[in-house]
Amino acid sequence: MTVSAGIILAGGQARRMGGGDKGRLILGGQSMLDRVIDRLGPQVGRMALSANGDAARFAEFGLPVLPDTVAGFPGPLAGVLAGMDWAADLGASHVITAAADTPFFPTDLGSRLREGARRAGTPIALAATIEEGRLVRHPTFGYWPVALRFDLRQALEDGLRKVVLWTDRHGATSTVFPGDPFFNINTPEDYMQAERIIRTTAE
């Protein structure tokens, strides 16, 4: 039995980057999506991409592409739901999600989220950091039980869109990671900063 499946949330429309798939941007000679796959792959049994539109544009990555199953582009929770449904067919008990525009997330993300959920006795764990003394959650990085997929589908069909509103209903815990590993690329300035990070770490 596959315990955890990995879902890369790649459904954003990248308006601030001029549109298109941010995951296809090249960072340090490698696509951002390849960097995410390299980080998440060793942490899970199987992986898939959550994305709408023509799946053929992701053919080079060799992963299943999961479109939303709820109409209206309701956001990342729809990607989580599509991942849960796919993982259920595999016999997986949980999915671990990561965003396609966040190339430096921790290589121990999955194990720490699982442990966080176990210690808290809660079904869901979300990644978090401490910024200026304040807890900041990163809800696209989470550990989600497949068993909640029916509840999530109903919530989406009822109009819920904000991730933390749904996770709070289920007592989600926050697993705190040090530093700023969930830096994501939303703007051209972010892209240049990511290039600088890669150059610095390669030196």
Rank of each mutant, 00 (worst) to 15 (best):
59 A>I: 00
146 V>W: 06
199 R>A: 15
154 Q>I: 03
21 D>L: 00
67 P>D: 10
26 I>S: 13
41 G>K: 15
155 A>H: 06
70 V>H: 01
162 K>Q: 10
176 V>S: 11
196 R>L: 08
41 G>W: 09
138 H>R: 14
22 K>A: 12
145 P>F: 06
179 G>V: 06
136 V>K: 13
44 V>C: 11
19 G>R: 14
188 P>M: 01
98 A>K: 02
106 P>E: 09
43 Q>N: 12
84 M>G: 07
51 A>F: 01
51 A>H: 07
161 R>F: 01
140 T>I: 04
147 A>R: 15
21 D>C: 00
143 Y>R: 15
57 R>T: 06
198 I>S: 01
93 S>M: 07
184 N>V: 01
110 G>P: 04
90 L>E: 11
150 F>M: 10
192 M>P: 00
192 M>F: 01
76 P>R: 11
102 T>S: 14
51 A>E: 08
168 D>L: 00
51 A>S: 15
71 A>N: 08
190 D>V: 05
165 L>Y: 04
29 G>Q: 08
141 F>R: 13
184 N>C: 07
169 R>A: 11
179 G>M: 09
68 D>S: 12
127 A>P: 10
185 I>F: 00
103 P>F: 00
105 F>Y: 08
56 A>I: 04
2 T>C: 10
155 A>F: 00
100 A>P: 02
169 R>T: 08
95 V>A: 07
140 T>V: 09
128 A>R: 13
192 M>V: 03
156 L>E: 05
71 A>F: 01
148 L>A: 11
183 F>H: 15
43 Q>A: 13
34 D>I: 02
171 G>H: 10
156 L>D: 09
177 F>T: 13
52 N>L: 07
22 K>S: 13
154 Q>P: 00
151 D>V: 02
23 G>V: 04
114 R>C: 05
100 A>D: 14
180 D>T: 14
86 W>L: 11
150 F>R: 15
182 F>P: 06
117 A>Y: 02
138 H>T: 03
145 P>G: 10
33 L>G: 10
46 R>T: 05
92 A>K: 09
135 L>Q: 14
131 E>Y: 05
70 V>P: 01
